Computed example of a mutant assay.
Amino acid sequence: MTAPTPTNPGRFAALRSLWDRVTEPRRLKALYAFLYAVATGTGVVTLLFPPQSVEGVLGRALVVVWSSLFIAGGVGGMSTVLNGRWKWERWSIGSILMGIGIYGAVVLSLHFTSSGSRLTQLGVLVLAAGLFVVKLELIRWYSFDPRR
Protein backbone atom coordinates (compact mmCIF):
# COMPACT_ATOMS: atom_id res chain seq x y z
CA MET A 1 0.00 0.00 0.00
CA THR A 2 1.28 3.45 -0.83
CA ALA A 3 1.50 6.29 1.65
CA PRO A 4 -1.08 9.09 1.44
CA THR A 5 -0.03 12.06 -0.68
CA PRO A 6 -1.80 15.26 -1.77
CA THR A 7 -2.92 13.48 -4.96
CA ASN A 8 -3.67 10.20 -3.14
CA PRO A 9 -5.21 11.11 0.23
CA GLY A 10 -5.64 7.49 1.31
CA ARG A 11 -8.70 5.49 2.16
CA PHE A 12 -9.47 7.36 5.37
CA ALA A 13 -9.63 10.84 3.83
CA ALA A 14 -13.41 11.08 4.23
CA LEU A 15 -13.20 10.16 7.93
CA ARG A 16 -10.35 12.62 8.42
CA SER A 17 -12.40 15.34 6.74
CA LEU A 18 -15.33 14.69 9.11
CA TRP A 19 -13.00 14.64 12.12
CA ASP A 20 -11.45 17.95 11.06
CA ARG A 21 -14.90 19.59 11.06
CA VAL A 22 -15.25 18.98 14.79
CA THR A 23 -13.84 21.89 16.79
CA GLU A 24 -11.42 21.39 19.62
CA PRO A 25 -11.40 19.67 22.02
CA ARG A 26 -12.30 16.92 19.55
CA ARG A 27 -11.63 13.97 21.81
CA LEU A 28 -13.77 15.39 24.59
CA LYS A 29 -16.63 16.02 22.17
CA ALA A 30 -16.28 12.48 20.80
CA LEU A 31 -16.40 11.12 24.35
CA TYR A 32 -19.59 13.04 25.07
CA ALA A 33 -21.08 11.86 21.76
CA PHE A 34 -20.44 8.31 22.99
CA LEU A 35 -22.11 9.11 26.34
CA TYR A 36 -25.13 10.54 24.52
CA ALA A 37 -25.28 7.33 22.47
CA VAL A 38 -25.23 5.33 25.72
CA ALA A 39 -28.07 7.49 27.06
CA THR A 40 -30.06 6.83 23.89
CA GLY A 41 -29.42 3.10 24.10
CA THR A 42 -30.34 3.06 27.78
CA GLY A 43 -33.63 4.78 26.99
CA VAL A 44 -34.46 2.33 24.20
CA VAL A 45 -33.62 -0.73 26.31
CA THR A 46 -35.59 0.69 29.26
CA LEU A 47 -38.59 1.35 27.02
CA LEU A 48 -38.53 -2.14 25.54
CA PHE A 49 -37.47 -4.09 28.65
CA PRO A 50 -38.15 -1.99 31.78
CA PRO A 51 -36.62 -3.17 35.05
CA GLN A 52 -39.38 -4.85 37.02
CA SER A 53 -38.38 -3.19 40.29
CA VAL A 54 -38.63 0.26 38.70
CA GLU A 55 -41.80 -0.46 36.72
CA GLY A 56 -43.42 -1.67 39.94
CA VAL A 57 -42.70 1.67 41.62
CA LEU A 58 -43.39 4.01 38.68
CA GLY A 59 -45.96 2.14 36.65
CA ARG A 60 -45.79 1.62 32.89
CA ALA A 61 -46.79 5.17 31.91
CA LEU A 62 -44.01 6.80 33.92
CA VAL A 63 -41.48 4.27 32.67
CA VAL A 64 -42.33 5.44 29.15
CA VAL A 65 -41.77 9.06 30.22
CA TRP A 66 -38.55 8.18 32.03
CA SER A 67 -37.09 6.23 29.12
CA SER A 68 -38.22 8.92 26.67
CA LEU A 69 -36.20 11.50 28.61
CA PHE A 70 -33.07 9.42 28.04
CA ILE A 71 -33.88 8.89 24.36
CA ALA A 72 -34.64 12.57 23.69
CA GLY A 73 -31.59 13.74 25.64
CA GLY A 74 -29.30 11.23 23.99
CA VAL A 75 -30.45 11.91 20.43
CA GLY A 76 -30.42 15.65 21.03
CA GLY A 77 -26.96 15.50 22.54
CA MET A 78 -25.55 13.39 19.71
CA SER A 79 -26.93 15.82 17.15
CA THR A 80 -25.53 18.93 18.87
CA VAL A 81 -22.28 18.03 20.63
CA LEU A 82 -20.06 17.86 17.56
CA ASN A 83 -21.38 21.01 15.89
CA GLY A 84 -21.32 23.20 19.01
CA ARG A 85 -24.99 24.17 19.29
CA TRP A 86 -24.82 24.52 23.02
CA LYS A 87 -28.26 26.06 23.50
CA TRP A 88 -29.84 22.81 22.35
CA GLU A 89 -27.25 20.62 24.02
CA ARG A 90 -28.21 22.15 27.37
CA TRP A 91 -31.81 21.01 26.78
CA SER A 92 -30.50 17.51 26.05
CA ILE A 93 -28.43 17.46 29.21
CA GLY A 94 -31.45 18.63 31.20
CA SER A 95 -33.50 15.79 29.79
CA ILE A 96 -30.86 13.22 30.70
CA LEU A 97 -30.46 14.68 34.19
CA MET A 98 -34.23 14.48 34.72
CA GLY A 99 -34.11 10.83 33.67
CA ILE A 100 -31.25 10.16 36.08
CA GLY A 101 -33.13 12.04 38.80
CA ILE A 102 -36.27 9.95 38.35
CA TYR A 103 -34.24 6.75 38.46
CA GLY A 104 -32.37 8.06 41.52
CA ALA A 105 -35.64 8.77 43.33
CA VAL A 106 -36.85 5.24 42.59
CA VAL A 107 -33.56 3.71 43.76
CA LEU A 108 -33.69 5.76 46.95
CA SER A 109 -37.29 4.69 47.52
CA LEU A 110 -36.37 1.05 46.98
CA HIS A 111 -33.47 1.40 49.40
CA PHE A 112 -35.91 2.21 52.19
CA THR A 113 -38.81 -0.04 51.17
CA SER A 114 -37.14 -3.26 50.04
CA SER A 115 -34.46 -5.52 51.42
CA GLY A 116 -30.81 -4.85 50.74
CA SER A 117 -28.85 -1.72 50.07
CA ARG A 118 -29.25 0.41 46.96
CA LEU A 119 -26.57 2.93 47.94
CA THR A 120 -24.08 1.63 45.37
CA GLN A 121 -26.63 2.20 42.60
CA LEU A 122 -27.31 5.67 43.96
CA GLY A 123 -23.58 6.45 44.03
CA VAL A 124 -23.14 5.34 40.43
CA LEU A 125 -26.11 7.53 39.43
CA VAL A 126 -24.48 10.54 41.11
CA LEU A 127 -21.26 9.80 39.21
CA ALA A 128 -23.17 9.55 35.92
CA ALA A 129 -25.04 12.77 36.58
CA GLY A 130 -21.74 14.42 37.46
CA LEU A 131 -20.42 13.88 33.93
CA PHE A 132 -23.36 15.79 32.50
CA VAL A 133 -23.19 18.50 35.16
CA VAL A 134 -19.53 19.08 34.24
CA LYS A 135 -20.48 19.38 30.55
CA LEU A 136 -23.28 21.78 31.47
CA GLU A 137 -20.82 23.92 33.41
CA LEU A 138 -18.45 23.99 30.42
CA ILE A 139 -21.13 25.26 28.01
CA ARG A 140 -23.38 27.38 30.20
CA TRP A 141 -22.32 30.86 29.08
CA TYR A 142 -22.86 30.65 25.32
CA SER A 143 -25.59 29.44 22.99
CA PHE A 144 -22.98 28.20 20.50
CA ASP A 145 -19.32 27.21 20.50
CA PRO A 146 -17.37 30.49 20.13
CA ARG A 147 -14.49 28.60 18.46
CA ARG A 148 -16.66 27.84 15.41
Score class of each variant (00 low, 15 high):
T2P: 14
A3I: 13
P4I: 04
P4S: 05
T5F: 04
T7K: 10
N8I: 03
G10H: 05
R11A: 06
F12A: 10
L15P: 00
L15D: 06
L15F: 14
R21G: 13
R21K: 13
V22W: 03
V22D: 09
E24Q: 14
R26Q: 15
R26Y: 05
R26P: 00
R26D: 01
R27D: 09
L28Y: 15
K29W: 08
K29L: 10
K29M: 06
A30I: 11
A30P: 01
Y32K: 07
Y32V: 11
F34E: 06
L35Y: 10
Y36N: 15
Y36L: 11
A37P: 03
A37L: 15
V38D: 11
A39T: 08
G41C: 08
T42M: 06
G43I: 04
V44E: 03
V45D: 13
V45A: 14
T46M: 15
F49P: 00
F49G: 01
F49E: 11
P50D: 08
P51K: 05
P51F: 02
P51H: 02
S53H: 11
S53P: 00
G56E: 12
G56C: 12
G56W: 05
V57K: 12
G59A: 12
G59K: 14
G59H: 12
R60E: 14
V63R: 01
V64T: 11
V64C: 02
V64S: 02
V64P: 01
V64Y: 02
V65Y: 05
V65H: 03
W66G: 08
W66Y: 13
W66R: 12
S67E: 08
L69Q: 02
L69N: 04
F70W: 08
F70H: 15
F70G: 08
I71E: 07
A72H: 02
G77D: 06
G77V: 12
M78E: 13
T80Q: 09
T80I: 01
V81T: 15
G84R: 05
G84T: 09
E89D: 14
I93E: 05
G94H: 09
I96Y: 07
L97I: 06
M98H: 00
M98V: 14
I100R: 00
I102D: 03
I102Q: 05
A105M: 08
V106P: 03
V106E: 02
V107C: 07
V107N: 04
S109F: 14
F112P: 00
F112H: 09
T113C: 05
S114L: 10
S114Q: 14
S114K: 12
S115V: 12
S115D: 11
G116P: 09
S117I: 04
Q121D: 15
Q121N: 09
L122Q: 03
L122W: 05
G123R: 06
A128S: 05
A128H: 06
A129N: 06
A129T: 05
G130P: 02
G130N: 08
L131S: 10
F132T: 01
F132H: 10
V133E: 02
V134Q: 04
V134G: 02
L136S: 09
L136T: 00
I139H: 03
F144H: 15
F144D: 12
F144G: 06
R147T: 14
R147W: 00
